[in-house]
Simulated assay, not measured.
Amino acid sequence: MLLHAITRRERHAVTTEAMDLIAALGGWVDDARMFSNTMTTIRFHLAESRLEELRSRLCEGGLPTTDAGGELRRSPSADSERAGSLQITFVHDDGDLRQDVPSVPG
Rank of each mutant, 00 (worst) to 15 (best):
D30H: 10
T40M: 09
T15Q: 15
E53M: 12
L46Y: 13
L54Q: 03
C59R: 02
R82A: 10
I6N: 13
E52M: 09
C59L: 03
A18F: 03
L3P: 00
G70Q: 07
S80L: 13
R82H: 07
G84W: 15
S85L: 11
V29F: 00
L51K: 04
F90V: 02
A68M: 12
G84L: 08
D30I: 04
P102N: 07
G26E: 02
E71T: 02
L63F: 00
C59A: 10
G27Q: 10
V29M: 04
T41E: 07
R8S: 12
A5F: 05
E48F: 11
S56F: 14
E17T: 10
R98H: 12
V14H: 13
V101D: 11
A68T: 08
S49Y: 01
G69S: 11
R55L: 03
A47H: 05
L3F: 11
P76Y: 14
G106R: 08
E52T: 10
R57K: 03
S56K: 04
T40S: 13
G61A: 08
M1R: 12
G62Q: 02
G26L: 03
L3E: 12
A78H: 06
R33T: 13
L21M: 02
A47G: 05
H92A: 04
A32M: 09
A78K: 05
S56W: 13
I42V: 08
I42P: 00
S85F: 10
P64Y: 02
L54M: 04
I88D: 07
Q99P: 07
E17G: 05
L86F: 01
E53T: 07
A18E: 05
T38E: 14
L21W: 03
L97W: 09
N37T: 06
D79P: 14
L2R: 15
D30W: 01
S49M: 05
L63A: 00
E10Y: 15
T15Y: 14
D31M: 09
H92N: 07
V29W: 00
T16H: 14
P105Q: 11
R73K: 10
G84P: 01
I88S: 10
I42K: 00
S80T: 12
P64A: 00
A24Y: 01
F90C: 01
I42N: 04
T66K: 10
F44C: 00
S56L: 11
G61P: 00
E48I: 08
V104F: 14
P76R: 04
L63V: 01
E10A: 08
W28E: 08
W28Q: 06
A23C: 06
Q87N: 14
A32N: 07
D96L: 13
D20K: 11
T38Q: 15
D93H: 06
A83N: 14
L63E: 00
R73G: 01
R55P: 11
L51F: 03
R43H: 14
D93W: 08
A5Q: 08
L86N: 05
G27W: 03
G84M: 14
